[in-house]
Amino acid sequence: MKFSILIANYNNGKYFKECYDSIMAQEYRDWEAVILDDASTDDSVRVIKNIIGSDNRFRFFENAGNSGVGITKSKLIELADGDICGFVDPDDAITPTAISSSIKNFRKQDVVLTYSRFMSCNDNLQPVSPFVTRQVRNNDHYFFNYPIQIAHFVCFRKKVYRNTEKMNTAMKIAEDQDLYLKMYEKGKVKFINEINYLYRLHSGGISQNDNKSESYEYFAKVIFSAMKRRGLKKINGNKIPDEYTHSREIYSLLEYQHSIPYRIKKKVIIFIQKIFG
């Protein structure tokens, strides 16, 4: 079972060596790394090409012009030759067993996506704090990954991806959450209770700076699209709007999921799903 590591780069060549080292240290050996540079304005292309050298397990491509993250990640999936795909940002890294622990779960035919815990790190990729996550409930039409649980290191079956609406190329932010919800609708997702991803916090990070409010808005649009895709009319007795207007209207529909009775019920269902598969 071949694994495709997908790397969308834009001006992060200076961090790539640690990402590269983490790929080379993988316990699982049947992998390829597909890198697509989105018209970087720094020396990323030169730096990355020098690092990967002539190793044919690394395939390097360049966009003719800056296309944005949605288009770039969509292209990466299409370029992948592997059965399983997983995105790794060039300024981050994965742990040595990240791919092998994911592959073990994909040996089960009904698993379409895996995700794990990740460690937030400083600019030097030194651990700061782990992100708290856990197994989500499967087969739930009202699951929207809010608050976020499905996060790094996310891996998915390419053949199942082909049967979705695929990556939304118009997305500039939250394109990953859109993908996760589409995959969630196609089968079981499995949480791997290991820290398999090192997430670097630095001033150049796209999702870490002044995009919080914009990200919040994009995520609301992702959730609204999922509601429509699933044919939902109401949530907890409240009508879903016919057209998207504002993020507040969407998030308010999900407030009931923060209540104690709902959370207890969810935990019980997840426990039962774990026992009976």
Rank of each mutant, 00 (worst) to 15 (best):
G205M: 09
R137S: 03
D210P: 08
C121L: 06
S44M: 04
C85V: 15
S129M: 07
F16S: 01
N196C: 08
K274P: 00
R117K: 15
R137C: 13
N139P: 03
N196L: 09
E185K: 08
L125A: 05
A64R: 14
H141P: 12
P130M: 03
R157D: 04
F219C: 14
T164E: 10
S213C: 04
W31L: 04
A226C: 07
G237S: 03
G82Q: 14
I195W: 01
K228R: 11
S44H: 07
F131E: 05
A98L: 13
A170D: 13
S129Y: 14
S101M: 10
F219M: 06
N124L: 12
S74T: 05
R248Y: 11
Q149S: 09
K233N: 04
Q126H: 04
K221E: 09
Y199N: 10
V88F: 06
L253Q: 05
I23M: 14
N196A: 13
F58L: 05
I223M: 10
R46H: 13
Y146D: 03
Q257D: 07
I94E: 09
L179R: 01
F219N: 12
I48Q: 01
Q273C: 04
E18G: 11
P147C: 10
I235S: 12
V154N: 01
E32W: 14
I77G: 03
K233W: 06
H246D: 06
F219H: 02
S100K: 12
A93H: 03
W31I: 06
P261M: 11
S22Q: 09
A93Y: 08
Y10L: 09
K267G: 02
I240H: 11
D110N: 06
V128P: 04
G187M: 01
Y142H: 12
R162Q: 05
E32T: 11
K188T: 08
T164R: 02
N236A: 10
D21H: 15
N236M: 11
H202N: 07
Y142V: 02
S100W: 03
T164Y: 08
Y218V: 06
E27Y: 02
Y28L: 03
P261N: 12
A25G: 07
Q177H: 15
D37F: 03
T114Y: 02
L181S: 00
A174N: 00
H141I: 04
P96K: 11
I71E: 00
S40I: 01
D55V: 11
D89E: 08
I51L: 14
K73M: 06
M167A: 12
S44A: 05
D81I: 15
G204Q: 12
G65M: 10
I223A: 02
Q135L: 05
D81Y: 09
I5H: 02
F60M: 15
I148G: 05
I223K: 00
N12T: 12
